[in-house]
């Protein structure tokens, strides 16, 4: 694309990244969560791929890194859920809630202003799922573009 589009994509991409990470990190307080934030970040990647050509982007983004990100997300999700067995609870028990440690401030019932350090293991799961969706959707776009480029059309 032209120089204007490339410069605009360069300027906008960090803001998309930060907005996506905000949506992921505040998933337990405001509308959003892991899937939505990951999709927002993957949209930023698609913007960069549209602004530059696929041949240039292929050298910046490594498929192995994205695949590793996805695997880390899924394994982290299962691992966080499985860690409850070490605390003597059942699978998927929210062991961090109201424990006083990380993400462990108890929340009473009612409307409040929201505290970031709450939520038990839900923020950890948001991060792992956001990581997985980020890697997975970007990888899908890259693989489909590689099929197009091989065809030459």
């Amino acid at each position: 694309m032209s120089r204007i589009v490339r410069t605009a994509a360069d300027i906008i991409y960090p803001f998309i990244l930060i907005f996506g990470l905000y949506v992921v990190a505040h998933g337990h307080l405001t509308p959003g969560g892991g899937f939505q934030g990951g999709a927002v970040i993957a949209t930023g990647g698609a913007l960069v791929i549209v602004a530059y050509s696929y041949v240039e982007v292929r050298e910046w983004l490594s498929g192995k890194v994205l695949m590793g990100q996805e695997v880390i997300g899924l394994v982290g999700f299962i691992g966080v859920a499985l860690l409850a067995l070490a605390f003597g609870q059942v699978f998927f028990f929210n062991y961090l809630n109201a424990s006083g440690s990380l993400f462990g401030i108890p929340v009473p019932y009612g409307i409040n202003a929201g505290e970031l350090n709450t939520g038990g293991f839900v923020p950890l799961m948001n991060f792992s799922v956001g990581c997985e969706v980020w890697g997975g959707l970007t990888l899908v776009i890259l693989y489909m573009l590689s099929g197009l480029e091989k065809e030459g059309c």
Partner: peptide, 12 residues
């Protein structure tokens, strides 16, 4: 809210 500690009930 008491059992999971999240304000967003969809996420919980």
């Amino acid at each position: 809210q008491e059992q999971t500690g999240t304000n967003n009930q969809c996420t919980s």
